[in-house]
Every structure is written in structure tokens, then in C-alpha cells.
Design a protein around this nucleic acid. Structure first.
Length: 577
RNA sequence: CGGGGCGUAGCGUAGUGGCUAGCGCGCCUGCUUUGGGAGCAGGAGAUCGGGAGUUCGAAUCUCCCCGCCCCGACCA
């Protein structure tokens, strides 16, 4: 039983000056966390209990799925990270330190290497697979910009699991088991979330999904279809476009277009020259980029911008993409800035990528590769060839859902889980092999799965709080019932003590506000701020043999007889769970 | 890393060159009070982020450093 009279807790009446987002403000005000340094927080008793509750739900669901818990140090030797090249690749985000002999160590940002090596040390047969291991550990990342309190810290608690399989099919199965376990976990934690397709990106591997908890203060944006529920990371959003029919389109026609180096000026000219109705979307923009050492042209409708991050995510193997600079144009004299068209790309040796909207058979107005000249009736497949189609434009609210064609919305969320099929990258680098049925050595394939445990505290707070304070789901609250003794008579305190003890006897955890000289108003405010799901007031109703039972979230109140209070509270709690 | 803002008691803040740095919350003592952040009286608590400088005099002006927050870049 938690007692307010002795609990190590001081709630704050004012919002802390350095906190902006609700979870940060309220967790500090209600006495769950305190800032120690940028992105580094201490946990007070209420915070520790809440964090542990979440950990335990995660742990139970991992165990239920048949995954086994292990534990690694947070401080790790450099060597394994050199073997996978991450000592270098991770860059300044890695906390590095040295021991007295000058040997390099790091604070683990994630533990793929260690898990791989652990399995390598113990197992060597296909018969031992599949295997899934997990740990709940503190991770360290020297983020360039920690923010939003506990949402993005430099030290945070993460549950990370890794699956080990002989075959690709096995990996898919392990992946699905994790996915199912995550669904159960986040459901139990009372969170709202969307499972969103992501791009596997630099980590390699084929399939990846993120669990995103929608909330206005989230730092990730993603695409959501309000009709069919399709959800995708902007990088992973796809575009469904029908092929065009250009059979009735006239021949390519070059026309004079002086002083039209931008889309806007071009559209103006088109409307006066060929009649109204032309928009940026009628034109074809050629965005020149350098992908590592290759010159590429990305074709997008004139009213669209290229999202370089998205482009890069869809060009695996390419390290750096940058826009064309003067010296690049100098190498391609055929390119006339402001008047580039894809018609001569082949001749210039430029690789042509195109947004799917530039479908085969569609006709466009674009540059004629000569100063002050544009061309119209430029048909894809007839007048130019596209080498690769690629998702590269900035996704906009109102774009079509690839599943059901409804206009999508752009939503914000906090990433609370990420699952992906890693493949053999780490097993290859660290030489994790097992013998197969034929006695042949096979590289193991891996999956990696994370849940931000401390971040979940903040995400849940973000999703459940209201104007007056926190309001936890039953599964994570630091206690299930908050018994407030409102008054000064000993009889009230005795009744409060008894009720609290009876509830605890039923296995219902209780916070008892047994402070003698604190006024009822303060106790009510504190209870609402702290956010325990049920508040029971032992006060003036006791004259009639009643206590007042309140549901924190809905604000519903009812008086019930002391004698049946435990039963009634247990029943109400069950409906809240 | 670029841009912006901030740093005064545990928390929130006032104080643009002049006396002993002010107020609210919280904390301590006493009395009163107890259903919505009580009242009165007394009290403790501050190297004004740090250093250097200007000045008769610096929380206040100048320079350097440190720390923190926000936007962006970046980031399972």
C-alpha cells in the first residue's frame, strides 16, 4: 500500500518552465520523474512503479510467446561493434568511454552484436532453431537533440528481442509471432496505435513495420486512410496510378517559352498560349540529383516536390543523394537549367527515375532541352523512356489511399515499437552459422524487434491525460484505487485504513491519502493529477454509511455503502481494464 | 550542426547601474481551520549558471565559457 503521508513525493502546483509537451509537464508536476541533464531523467517512486508495470506487461507477453529473457551489460567492449563496422557507422550518437588502460568501451545503443555473439557461443545446430531472445535494458544514444521529456531521451529503457532462424520462411514466422505478441502487449497497455509499413532502409532486410501511438505531440508523421485504415510511413507510402492512353495525343511539339524557368511562369504562359486549364500538375519537372557518383533525373509532376529522404529510403545501397550543383551541370552540357526534358536523357547518360504518376502512356509538358523552349504532347514510352519508377515525391494530405482510393490524412504519432526482418547482415558479419541437416554450414537469419518501454510511459500519458492531470489505464497505474480521507475525524481515517486494507486483501493495489493536516481540496487535486483510475473519497458521506466512488477518466461519481465498497470497486475496475 | 529563447531559494517568478535581491507555492514553529490547491503570526532557505572585465558601485553593461528549452537538420 502506498501512503501519501510517507510517500517520497512532492507534487508541483506550477508547470515546470522547461517542459512543453503534456506528458513531460504532468509527469514532472505529479512527481514521477525529474530532469537530471538534457534527455536524462531520474524516476521517483510513482514513476518507478509505473515503469515496472509496463515492463511486466511486456515481459509477460514476451514469455507467453515463448521468448526467453536474457540480460546484457549496458557498457560494452568496442570489438564486436568494430566487426560490424558500427563503431564507425554509428558516429557521434554513440556514447564512448575508456577504462584506465585506455581501452575503448561504449554504452550500448542497441544490442544486435551481443545477441548474435551470445547465440554463436551457445548454439551450432539447426535443431536449436528457431530461437527468440529478449532483454529489457537501458540504452544510450547521444541524440543530437533530445526532446519532449521522456519521449526522446539520451538514456531510455527498451525491450529488444532478436529471432534466429535457419530459413527465410522461418524468419517470417518468427516475425509474425513477434507482431502478434506486440499487438497483445499494446492492447494490454491500453494504448491506441497503428501498425504502419516502414522502409527497412539502411539496416537492411526486407520487411519492417512500426507501431505508432497517435498523438498531436508525436514527432513522427505518417499517412493514414480514414476509410480503410491503411497506414504507412511517408517513406513507405505507395501510389496507385492507371496507365495513360496516349493514342489520340498529337505529335511532340516544341514551342517558344521565353523567361519561363520556373513551373509558375511556365503555367502562366501555357494558359495564355494554349487556353486556360493548365496547372502545375500538367507539367513534368526534371529534378537533377547525384546519387553517390551517378547522375539521375527524377521526373515528378510540376506541382510536386522531391522528398530526398523518401527517395533515399527507396534506393537501397545508395549512401548519399544531393541536388545538382553548378559543377555537375558543367559536366552535362546538354542540360539547360530550367528547360530540362527527359527526351534526351539516354544520350546524356542520365538514369531516369519517375514518380508513378508519370505513368506509361501519359502526356506531359516539359522542357525541350534548349533555352526558352518547352515541348508539349511529350508521351512516356513514345518520346522518352523511364528506367525506374520510384516513390519520391513529398506525400500530401489528400493523396489517394493505395488500397481504397480515399483521400489520406497526415497524422502525428510516437513510435513505440518497431519490428523488422534483419536478414543475415549481423550473422554474416559475426559469422553466426549452424550446421543444417546435411552437415553444411548455414548463416542464420535474424529479426529484430523493439519496444520503447520508458517512452511508452510518456506515450500513454500523452494519450490518456486531460486538463487536470494524468489518467492511467488500470494496467499501468501506480495503484488501482486512490483512497482519499477527506476530513479530520479519527473515524474517517479508521474507515479509510480499513477500506484500503480490504482492497489490498482482494489484490487491488491502493494509494491511501492518510495525510492528517492536508485540506481536502489539496488531496482531490493531487489525486486527479496523479491519475490513479479510481478515486474513493471517505468523507462526509460516511455519516450515512457511504463512501464516494469516482472514476478518474469519466468523472462519474456515485455513493455506495461501505460494506459493499470492495465488491463494487472490484466490479468497476474490471470494466475499466 | 543552423536559427530562436532562457538561466535569480526545491518549484514558479519580479527586479535595465544605487541602500539589506522582492513576491507566490512549497518547507519549519504556534494557534485557528478540514468537501475543492485554508487563515493569521513568526521563521529557515540565494556563491543572482561560472569566470574575467568596465565602474566609486554590477543580478543589471561588455567579453569568454557552461547549462537548459523550442524550431529545423538528424535520429530504432
Amino acid at each position: 500500500m502506498l501512503r501519501m503521508s510517507t510517500l517520497f513525493l512532492r507534487t508541483l502546483r506550477d508547470d515546470p518552465a522547461d517542459a512543453e509537451v503534456p506528458s513531460h509537464r504532468l509527469l514532472v508536476r505529479a512527481g514521477y520523474i525529474r530532469r537530471v541533464a538534457a534527455g536524462i531523467y531520474s524516476w521517483l517512486p510513482l514513476g518507478v512503479i509505473t515503469l515496472r508495470n509496463i515492463e511486466n506487461v511486456v515481459r509477460e507477453e514476451m514469455n507467453n510467446a515463448g521468448f526467453q529473457e536474457v540480460h546484457f551489460p549496458a557498457m560494452l567492449p568496442k570489438d564486436p561493434y568494430e566487426q560490424t563496422n558500427r563503431w564507425t557507422e554509428y558516429g557521434p550518437d554513440l556514447f564512448r568511454l575508456q577504462d584506465r588502460k585506455g581501452t575503448d568501451y561504449l554504452l550500448g545503443p542497441t544490442h544486435e552484436e551481443m545477441f548474435t555473439l551470445m547465440v554463436k557461443g551457445e548454439y551450432s545446430s539447426y535443431k536449436d532453431l528457431p530461437l527468440s531472445l529478449y532483454q529489457i535494458q537501458t540504452k544510450y544514444r547521444d541524440e543530437a537533440r533530445p526532446r519532449s521529456g521522456i519521449i526522446r531521451g539520451r538514456e531510455f529503457v527498451m525491450k529488444d528481442s532478436y529471432s534466429f532462424d535457419l530459413t527465410d520462411e522461418g524468419l517470417v514466422e518468427s516475425y509474425q509471432k513477434h507482431r502478434a505478441a506486440y499487438i497483445k502487449t499494446f492492447d494490454r497497455l491500453g494504448m491506441k496505435y497503428n501498425i504502419v509499413s516502414a522502409v527497412a532502409g539502411a539496416m537492411g532486410g526486407s520487411s519492417s513495420e512500426e507501431f505508432l501511438a497517435p498523438c498531436p505531440t508525436g514527432e513522427d508523421t505518417y499517412v493514414l486512410c480514414p476509410s480503410c485504415g491503411y497506414a504507412a510511413n511517408v517513406e513507405a507510402m505507395t501510389t496507385k496510378v492507371a496507365a495513360g492512353d496516349a493514342s489520340s495525343v498529337g505529335a511532340l511539339e516544341v514551342f517558344d517559352s521565353p523567361n519561363t524557368p520556373t513551373i509558375d511562369t511556365l503555367v502562366e504562359l501555357l494558359n495564355s498560349k494554349f487556353g486556360p486549364g493548365h496547372t502545375g500538375a500538367s507539367t513534368l519537372k526534371n529534378v537533377m540529383l547525384m546519387a553517390d557518383e551517378t547522375a539521375i533525373s527524377v521526373l515528378v509532376p510540376g506541382d510536386r516536390e522531391v522528398d530526398i529522404k523518401r527517395l533515399q529510403a527507396n534506393m537501397p545501397g545508395v549512401n548519399e543523394i544531393r541536388v545538382f550543383e553548378e559543377q555537375d551541370f558543367a559536366k552535362f552540357p546538354g542540360l539547360v537549367k530550367g528547360y530540362i526534358g527527359p527526351q534526351d536523357a539516354k544520350k546524356s547518360g542520365i538514369v531516369v527515375y519517375a514518380d508513378p504518376r508519370i505513368a506509361p502512356g501519359t502526356a506531359w509538358i516539359t522542357g525541350a532541352n534548349a533555352k526558352d523552349k518547352h515541348a508539349r504532347n511529350v508521351v512516356n514510352g513514345r518520346d522518352f523512356e523511364v528506367d525506374h519508377y520510384i516513390e519520391a515525391v513529398v506525400v500530401r494530405e489528400g493523396d489517394s489511399c493505395p488500397k481504397c482510393d480515399t483521400a489520406v490524412v497526415i497524422d502525428r504519432a510516437i513510435e513505440i515499437g518497431h519490428i523488422f526482418q534483419l536478414g543475415r547482415k549481423y550473422a554474416d558479419a559475426l559469422n553466426l552459422t549452424v550446421l543444417d541437416q546435411n552437415g553444411k554450414s548455414q548463416v542464420v537469419t535474424m529479426g529484430s524487434y523493439g519496444i520503447g518501454v520508458s517512452r511508452a510511459v510518456a506515450a500513454i500519458a500523452e494519450q490518456t491525460h486531460d486538463e487536470i492531470g494524468l489518467s492511467w489505464p488500470v494496467s499501468v497505474a501506480p495503484a488501482k484505487v486512490h483512497v482519499v480521507v477527506a476530513g479530520k475525524d479519527d473515524a474517517l481515517f479508521e474507515a479509510g485504513e480499513k477500506l484500503a486494507a480490504d482492497l489490498e486483501g482482494r489484490g487491488i493495489s491502493v494509494m491511501l491519502d492518510d495525510r492528517r493536516s492536508t485540506s481536502p481540496g489539496v488531496k482531490f487535486k493531487d489525486a486527479e493529477l496523479i491519475g490513479i483510475p479510481m478515486i474513493v473519497v471517505v468523507g462526509k458521506a460516511l455519516e450515512n454509511g457511504n463512501v464516494e466512488v469516482r472514476v478518474r477518466k469519466s468523472g462519474e461519481k456515485q455513493e455506495i455503502a461501505v460494506g459493499s465498497a470492495v465488491e463494487e470497486i472490484a466490479k468497476t475496475l474490471a470494466t475499466l481494464a
